[in-house]
């Protein structure tokens, strides 16, 4: 399992691995918003939590089709399926590797990009906390979508259509945590809901992903 994680990280960092693509996309989206909305700092500050959350969600989506499609194309998925690793472990590790290469940089960069959107002072901590709690769910749900569409040619768009609705609860509660944090009101309720979603999907969804992957490999 550790070997698989290390291989996935090494592949992500080397040429063609796509490491940093999501981050660069996030940066550009966030920079574009003030151009589109105008220089009204009060308005920007109000929409900043939502923009940052939607931006990181789309950045996450961008790299989902790499999670399993590359392994399927070169045949390693067949070989991993016959290896002693349980399929549930394989998809969990793949989701974890995706989170390290995509989610973690987003979490780290979001507070800095908050400055560009004039995010109010108390919002930074809660933006960071909500993204740190929510992005693992994005990776795990995304891996499920990738498992559903693996083997389909041009499956990327279909996967987006399947995955984006599943992202809605995470987005609602994540953005709510950041918004309430920025306004200085109580964040407990959305924070607990967000944590519940994250832990729930991390515990349960790998079984579903492994099951659909086994069917797709037939």
């Amino acid at each position: 399992m550790i070997a698989l994680l290390r291989r996935d990280l090494a592949l992500a960092i080397r040429a063609g691995g796509g490491f940093g693509l999501g981050l660069a996309f996030f940066l550009i989206v966030t920079v574009l918003v003030p151009f589109g909305v105008g220089a009204d700092t009060a308005l920007l500050g109000r929409i900043a939590p939502g923009i940052l959350w939607v931006g990181s969600l789309l950045a996450c989506l961008l790299s989902l089709d790499r999670i399993l499609a590359l392994d399927w194309e070169d045949g390693s998925l067949d070989l991993l399926a016959t290896a002693p690793l349980p399929m549930e472990g394989v998809v969990s590790i793949k989701a974890f590797a995706h989170w390290i290469t995509t989610g973690l940089p987003l979490v780290a960069a979001a507070p800095m990009l908050g400055v560009l959107l004039n995010l109010p002072g108390p919002g930074y901590v809660w933006l960071f906390v909500s993204l740190a709690l929510g992005t693992p769910a994005l990776s795990v749900i995304g891996t499920f979508g990738a498992a559903l569409t693996v083997g389909l040619k041009r499956g990327g768009l279909l996967m987006s259509l399947l995955v984006l609705p599943l992202y809605v609860p995470t987005l609602i509660f994540g953005a709510e945590v950041a918004r309430r944090g920025a306004e200085g009101s109580a964040v407990q309720t959305p924070l607990l809901m967000l944590a519940g979603i994250s832990f729930g999907v991390t515990a349960l969804l790998p079984f579903a992903s492994a099951a659909v992957l086994r069917i797709n490999l037939r």
Binding site: A10, G16, D74, P84, L85
Partner: peptide, 20 residues
């Protein structure tokens, strides 16, 4: 298909499968 990763060297590819 051989299941090789084009961006890993020959020995890295083999070592990965050995570890798995």
């Amino acid at each position: 298909a051989d299941g090789l990763k084009t961006m890993l060297s020959v020995s890295e590819n083999l070592t990965f499968w050995a570890q798995v």
